[in-house]
C-alpha cells in the first residue's frame, strides 16, 4: 500500500476509538447548544437578522465553521513541537518518505472521521433548533469546503509548528494560532460582523479558508469561488510546511538530531 494512504487509514483507525470520538462530538454538541442560545437571543434583539444572516443561516454557519475546527487536533502544534524538541522527529527522517507528507496524511485520516461525527450531529441538531439549511446548493459546496478547510488548517499547523526547529519549544504557539482562527478565521463571528478594517485584513490572511469558507457556504451563500481560493491557500500552506520542515530538518541534522 502507498505509505501515505497507509498513514491516512491508520489515522482513521486511531480516531475511531470511541473514547476520543465521543469527547469530540460531545464537545461539539455543547458548542452547538451554546451558540444556538446565544444567537437566538442576539437575533431576537436585532429583529431576526444580522449582517444578512438570519437565525438558521448563522446557526448553520457556526455548525460548519466549528466542525472544521473540532475535526482537527487543536494541540497538534504542541505535539509536533514536542516531537521536534525531544528529537522524536529524527527517527521519522530515516523513512524514505516525506515527514510532512506522512504526518499530514495521518492527521487528515483522523480529521475525516471526526468531521463525519460532527457533521452527523449537526445534521440532527441544527434542523431541530433552526430549520433546514438555507440552500441545498450551498450544502453541496460546503461539504468539499469543509474537507479543504481541515486540510488547510492541518498544513498551516505543520508550517506553524516548524518554529520548534529553531526555538525547540512550540508549547504555547498553538494557543495563539487557535485565536487567530477564532477571530480572523471567522470561527466565532462571520467576517461580515467584524469592523471593516479587521474584516479586510482577515480576508488577506489564510485563516478564513479554515473556518469562514465552509460556514459561509453552509449559511446559504452559493459562492463557488471560495473553494478555488481555498485550494490556492491549501497549496500555499502545504508548500510552506514542506519548506519549513526541509529547512528545519537540515538544522536538526546540523545539531546532531
Amino acid at each position: 500500500m502507498n505509505p501515505y494512504l497507509a498513514a491516512f487509514v491508520s489515522g482513521m483507525r486511531r480516531t475511531v476509538a470511541p473514547g476520543e470520538l465521543i469527547v469530540r462530538v460531545g464537545f461539539y454538541a455543547v458548542i452547538l447548544v451554546v451558540f444556538a442560545a446565544v444567537w437566538n437571543a442576539a437575533m431576537a434583539a436585532n429583529g431576526g437578522e444580522v449582517a444578512g444572516y438570519g437565525f438558521a443561516g448563522i446557526l448553520w454557519y457556526i455548525a460548519a465553521a466549528e466542525a472544521a475546527q473540532v475535526a482537527t487536533n487543536a494541540r497538534m502544534i504542541e505535539d509536533i513541537g514536542n516531537d521536534i524538541g525531544n528529537g522524536t522527529v529524527a527517527i521519522e527522517l530515516l523513512r524514505p518518505v516525506s515527514v510532512v507528507g506522512l504526518r499530514l496524511a495521518s492527521e487528515v485520516g483522523g480529521a475525516v472521521v471526526r468531521l463525519a461525527g460532527t457533521c452527523a450531529l449537526a445534521a440532527l441538531f441544527v434542523p431541530l433548533a433552526a430549520g433546514p439549511p438555507p440552500s441545498w446548493n450551498g450544502v453541496g459546496l460546503a461539504i468539499p469546503s469543509l474537507v479543504l478547510a481541515v486540510c488547510c488548517n492541518l498544513a498551516a499547523q505543520h508550517a506553524f509548528a516548524g518554529i520548534a526547529f529553531w526555538l525547540e519549544d512550540a508549547k504555547s504557539a498553538w494557543f495563539l494560532y487557535q485565536k487567530l482562527i477564532f477571530l480572523l478565521g471567522g470561527m466565532l463571528l462571520p467576517l461580515e460582523l467584524l469592523p471593516d478594517a479587521m474584516s479586510g485584513a482577515a480576508r488577506l490572511l489564510p485563516f478564513w479558508a479554515m473556518s469562514y469558507a465552509p460556514g459561509r457556504l453552509m449559511a446559504g451563500y452559493v459562492e463557488p469561488w471560495l473553494l478555488l481560493l481555498q485550494v490556492g491557500w491549501l497549496v500555499a500552506m502545504v508548500g510552506a510546511a514542506v519548506a519549513v520542515f526541509s529547512s528545519g530538518e537540515r538544522r536538526l541534522q546540523a545539531v546532531g538530531g
Partner: peptide, 24 residues
Amino acid sequence: VMTINDSVWVLFWILFFHRIGEVR
C-alpha cells in the same frame, strides 16, 4: 500567551456587543 488568549475573548465580546447591542 494565556493573557493574549484572554484578551482575544475580551475583543470578541467587545465586537459582539458593538455589533449586536444589548442582549437580555
